[in-house]
Design a binder for these strands. Structure first.
Lengths: 286, 286
DNA sequence: AGACGTTACGAAGGGCGTAAACATG
DNA sequence: CATGTTTACGCCCTTCGTAACGTCT
C-alpha cells in the first residue's frame, strides 16, 4: 500500500475520473490506471467502478483510512522540516469562531512582529497546525468542566487550556424561563432549538450529554458569526447553548447557566510539540 | 516516505542495531543501511546516530508518527480483507480488566458457537479490534456522565455504550469519611492514593478533572486484578476510585459516591464498522 | 583485530510514458 | 463514433544482494 497509490486513488475517487486525476497529479491516464490496478491487486478487492467512476463499498471504506494516513504522513514530513529549519518571523494564529476573541487577546503583544489571524473550522485547524500552515491554534468546544476537548490526534502536539467559562442557554429576555438562575438541560429537550454547529454547542452533543433523543430543530444556522445567531435567538427562532460571555453583551437576551449536566465552554491552545519559539505565549497558566 | 522505509527505521530504532533489524526483517544489513539512508535523504535530516545506534531528536520525533501510521496501514488492510471474506465461527472478545464482567455477561449466549475471551490493556484492545485480532472489544474508563471515552481512532469503528455506573471513592470501613453519602473529589486531593492505572481511575485523570495538583501517591499497583487492589485499600495503603459495583461485594470496604465533579465508570463496546455478523450483540440499547 | 555500518556495483524488478486496443454511452 | 479506460511494450530508475571498504572500540 504505497502512499502514492493511495493518493492517486483518493484523487480519482474525488474527481470521479481517471483522466482528470492524471492531470491533477501530473501523470498520464495510463499511470493512474496502473496505480489503481496495482492497489486493487494488492488489496485483493475492486475499489472503483468504472463508467461511471465511483468507489465501491470497499473503496469507500479505504477512503476513510486513506485520508488520515496521508494527513499523518504530511504532518510527519512538515514537522521534521520545522524541527530542522527555524521558522519565519510572522506568527500565524488560527482560531475557531468562538475562540477568536481569545486569539485576539493572546496575540495582542505580537502585532509588532507581524501576525496572521485566521478563522478556521475545527478539523481544519488541527490539520493546519499539524502541517505547519499555522503556528498556533485556538480551538473551542463545549465539555464537562475540566474535561479535555476531543482533538483528532495527528501527531505530537502540545495542548493546553487557555480558558473555560460557563455555558449558558441563550433565551430571549421575554422567555418564561428567562428568570431562572440555572436550568437542567434535559428539561429543555423538547424546546425549539437552532442547530448552529459551528458556533453553538452542536445538538447531537446535547443529545449525547443528556442521554435523550430531543433537541430537534427546524432552524439551521450555517454561519460562523455569533451576532447572527444571537439575532436569530432574539427573534424567537429557538434556543442555543453558548459561552456566557457571548450572551452578556446582548440587551435582548438572557443566558441561564446549564446544570445537570454541567457544561462549560472551553478554549484550548494547540501547537506542535516542542516548538521552541514564542515561549511567552505558552505561559498562560495551565 | 515509503512505509517499508518507515518500518525498517522503527525496527532499527527498537533493536538499536542495523544488523539485528536486517535479520528480523529478512533483509541484508546493506539493504537496511540503504533504507535508513534513503529515509534520511528524503527527510533531509539525520535520524539515527551510529555506534552506538540510537535515534536522534528528529528520529525520536519521527518514531511518534511512524507507529500510528503503520498501525493504520495495517488496520486498513485487515479491514478490507474482513470486508471481502466472512470470518470464522469463533467469536473473539477482548476486554479491559474492569470490563471483563460485562464481557462475560454479554457473551453468555455465545458459548455454543465457540468463544475466546481475552483480557487486554486499553491501547492494545483498540489495536486488536482494528487489525482483526479481535471481533469485539469492551473498553472501560472513567468520565463525566454521558461523556464518551477517549478512544484512539484507528479507523471506522462503531462505538456504543454498554453500561455506566457511578464511580466511588473506595475507603476502608473504618475510615473517618466512610459514613458520607457523597464526597467532593477535590477535598481528597491531599489524601493518600494508590496509583493503579490499569484498574482504578488513573491519578493524572483525577488531577485533570479537579484542576488540582494533588492525588500524589507512594504506592503503585501494576496488576490488573481488582481483588488485589481492594485488599491494598482495605489494608490502608491508600484510596482509589472504582466502579460502585466492584466495591459493594467487599465486606471491609465502603464506596462513597464521587460528586463535584461527577464521575462515572463507563463501559463501551467497540467493533469494526459495519461488521454484518452478530447483530444481536450490538442490540444493547444505545 | 573484530564487529558493525557504508559504499560500489551489477542484476532483477517495478514504474512511467507512448501507443494501440478496447468498452461504453 | 467519441470519450475514456485498459493493455502492451520499451526504457529508465530503483532496489536488493554480494562483496569490498571504512571506522569505531
Amino acid at each position: 500500500m504505497d502512499p502514492h497509490l493511495l493518493r492517486t486513488f483518493t484523487v480519482v475517487a474525488r474527481l470521479r475520473s481517471f483522466s482528470a486525476a492524471a492531470v491533477e497529479l501530473g501523470y498520464t491516464q495510463s499511470a493512474v490506471s496502473q496505480h489503481v490496478a496495482a492497489l486493487e491487486a494488492d488489496l485483493g478487492a475492486r475499489l472503483l467502478d468504472r463508467r461511471p467512476v465511483a468507489p465501491t463499498v470497499a473503496g469507500e471504506r479505504l477512503l476513510t483510512y486513506a485520508g488520515p494516513i496521508l494527513l499523518r504522513l504530511a504532518a510527519a514530513r512538515t514537522d521534521l522540516a520545522r524541527l530542522a529549519a527555524p521558522r519565519p518571523g510572522r506568527l500565524r494564529v488560527g482560531a475557531t469562531p468562538l475562540a477568536v476573541p481569545a486569539a485576539a487577546t493572546l496575540a495582542a503583544g505580537e502585532a509588532a512582529a507581524g501576525l496572521v489571524l485566521r478563522v478556521t473550522a475545527r478539523n481544519e485547524l488541527v490539520r493546519q497546525v499539524a502541517t505547519d500552515d499555522l503556528d498556533l491554534g485556538l480551538l473551542d468546544g463545549f465539555t464537562a468542566p475540566n474535561d479535555p476537548l476531543p482533538v483528532t490526534d495527528l501527531g505530537p502536539t502540545e495542548v493546553s487550556v487557555h480558558g473555560q467559562e460557563p455555558a449558558v442557554v441563550t433565551l430571549p429576555r421575554t422567555h418564561p424561563l428567562a428568570g431562572r438562575s440555572a436550568l437542567a438541560l434535559a428539561d429543555l429537550a423538547d424546546a425549539r432549538w437552532i442547530d448552529a454547529p459551528d458556533v453553538a454547542a452542536p445538538l447531537p452533543q446535547l443529545r449525547a450529554a443528556t442521554g435523550t433523543d430531543g433537541f430537534r430543530s427546524a432552524v439551521r444556522y450555517d454561519g460562523t458569526e455569533v451576532a447572527g445567531l444571537l439575532a436569530a435567538v432574539a427573534a424567537g427562532h429557538g434556543l442555543a447553548v453558548l459561552p456566557a460571555g457571548t450572551v452578556r453583551a446582548h440587551a435582548e437576551l438572557v443566558g441561564v447557566d446549564v446544570r445537570e449536566p454541567r457544561l462549560v465552554h472551553r478554549v484550548e491552545l494547540i501547537r506542535p510539540a516542542g516548538s521552541a519559539g514564542d515561549r511567552r505565549i505558552g505561559a498562560t497558566g495551565a
